[in-house]
Design a protein around this nucleic acid. Structure first.
Length: 452
RNA sequence: GCCCAGAUAGUGUAGUGGCCUAUCAUGAUGCCCUGUCACGGCAUCGACUCGGAUUCGAAUUCCGAUCUGGGCGCCA
């Protein structure tokens, strides 16, 4: 069978797609030992030397050279290679030749060269990366941008991050849930919400699944997770904020902050290990040949000590009770040199739902997971005692009436619980050493961008 | 929300009042080339965000608009 290799690795035969016309071998699987092959992909580069022309054909699995000795190929092939443009989709069949002169030690000499879809020119950006493109140009033509192997590698890694997360949490017997993204009111207060038109009612896009996760604790589910979008209507303009982000959210019953910190550091270790093991080619493309896997156990840095470090290393004064700004985060991160937790936060600067410490109610059982360059996750043991929660809402200057649907489960048997939310984009960004968080999302939503 | 910066061929850039019918690279088109791999050579094509002002003269200075990038706050 032409176009099929002996072990049946062909993608299409594997899935028994009856369109035999498209039978082709993934480029990665074209070895010098094959006699003939059909490949399909995009024209990455062309080099015409006169009597001899070279085409680099790229599919998802790799790039290989098609060599055209013009005097030795059919007339139709000559017509096609004259007509074809860069980034057109082609299907090429012919003889495989082992040769040291070609990348990968093999080349394809075509007997047929079909143009399946011609690409217009000029291209909105240079896929072969001879000329760089700015992030804005790239996002406008994201489909072309992602054709670049280096960019595709980011999303391959992101996919692996999500797979590792699922697999870890399922192994830990978590229940995967999905909760509404259209909500009636603020869940945490503070951050701005996107209002939406919802028939005759007022509604918003959800900024966090937090309250729903907590309700699932009252529902007796004990261990739940959700990976989904969160929306924040802040008009920030930075390389580490998005208005739509993907949150990995976890909530666990009969657990405190220490338990879920252990869960989080184990997850981080597992994600990094999985990427290091399964994404070697992608990491190589991104210039990270040796991905540093964080230790299974990460340092716990009490907030008070973080403030001390920041105060020592920074020009500007900072005192206990202040929020850690960007500069102080970096100063502390530099000192720590690894992922770490900031623990024992003052109750005054954390949300109403954080559980105050039994030993000292002025600090609470909240924590942040930090990468040396930025915050990745925040979490806490939640307050599960109804009267105490109402009191805390009031002490933050909020009105309990606005939290009726949230408070109700706390009156009918809410177990003690704790959880966290982890920013997927920030995780991928820091892991891949990306300079802009928009690199870590296919179609970012920022202050100015709603398309594509 | 506050602050800073920027906008020149499809893409990435040079340019600081006349030397700009605008530089370089990449690209596209045509010609030459049988081992390229950032192929090479020759020729051609293609741009100053918009509006106003200053000036003999503006890509360049000023004002306004539009669009964009970034810093801070806050956060994932």
């Amino acid at each position: 069978m032409p176009g099929c290799i002996p072990d049946g690795t062909n993608l299409f035969t594997l899935h028994e797609v009856p369109v035999l016309d498209f039978m082709r071998i993934p480029i990665r699987d074209v070895t010098p030992t094959l006699e003939r092959a059909t490949i399909a992909g995009w024209v990455h580069e062309e080099r015409d030397l006169g009597g001899l022309a070279f085409f680099l054909i790229r599919d998802r699995t790799g790039i290989m050279q098609v060599t055209v000795p013009k005097k030795k190929v059919p007339e139709e092939v000559l017509i096609a290679i004259k007509e074809v443009s860069r980034e057109s989709v082609v299907r090429v069949s012919g003889i495989i030749k082992a040769t040291e002169k070609a990348p990968g030690g093999r080349e394809l000499v075509p007997e047929s060269f079909e143009i399946l879809a011609k690409a217009a020119s000029p291209l909105p950006l240079d896929v072969a990366e001879k000329v760089p493109a700015e992030i804005d140009t790239r996002l406008d033509a994201r489909f072309l941008d992602v054709r670049r192997p280096r960019i595709a590698a980011i999303f391959s890694i992101r996919s692996r991050v999500m797979e590792a997360t699922h697999s870890f949490l399922f192994r830990e017997e978590f229940l995967q849930i999905t909760t509404p993204k259209v909500v009636a009111a603020a869940t945490e207060g503070g951050t701005e919400l996107f209002p939406i038109a919802y028939f005759e009612k007022e509604a918003f896009l959800s900024q966090s699944p937090q309250l729903y996760k907590q309700m699932m604790m009252a529902a007796g589910c004990e261990k739940v997770f959700e990976i989904g979008p969160i929306f924040r209507a802040e008009e920030h303009n930075t390389v580490r904020h998005l208005n739509e982000a993907t949150s990995i959210d976890v909530e666990v019953s009969f657990a405190d902050h220490n338990d879920v910190m252990v869960l989080l550091e184990r997850l981080m270790h597992e994600i990094y290990s999985s990427v290091a093991e399964n994404c070697t080619a992608e990491l190589e493309l991104l210039g990270i040949p040796n991905l540093q896997v964080p230790e299974k156990s990460l340092p716990r840095l009490p907030y008070a000590e973080a403030i001390e470090i920041a105060a020592r290393k920074m020009e500007e004064p900072i005192a206990y009770g202040d929020d850690l700004g960007t500069a102080s985060e970096r100063a502390v991160g530099e000192e720590m040199g690894t992922h770490y937790f900031i623990t024992e936060w003052p109750t005054a600067i954390r949300p109403y739902y954080a559980m105050p410490s039994a030993a000292d109610p002025s600090i609470c059982n909240a924590f942040d997971l930090m990468h040396p360059k930025m915050e990745l996750s925040s979490g806490a043991q939640r307050c599960h005692v109804y009267d105490q929660l109402v009191a805390q809402i009031k002490s933050k200057g909020l009105s309990p009436e606005g939290f009726e649907f949230y408070l109700k489960p706390f009156q009918y048997g809410m177990p003690p619980h704790a959880g966290w939310g982890l920013g997927t984009e920030r995780l991928v960004m820091t892991m891949c050493n990306l300079q802009n968080i928009r690199e870590a999302v296919l179609f970012p939503r920022d202050r100015h961008r709603v398309t594509p």
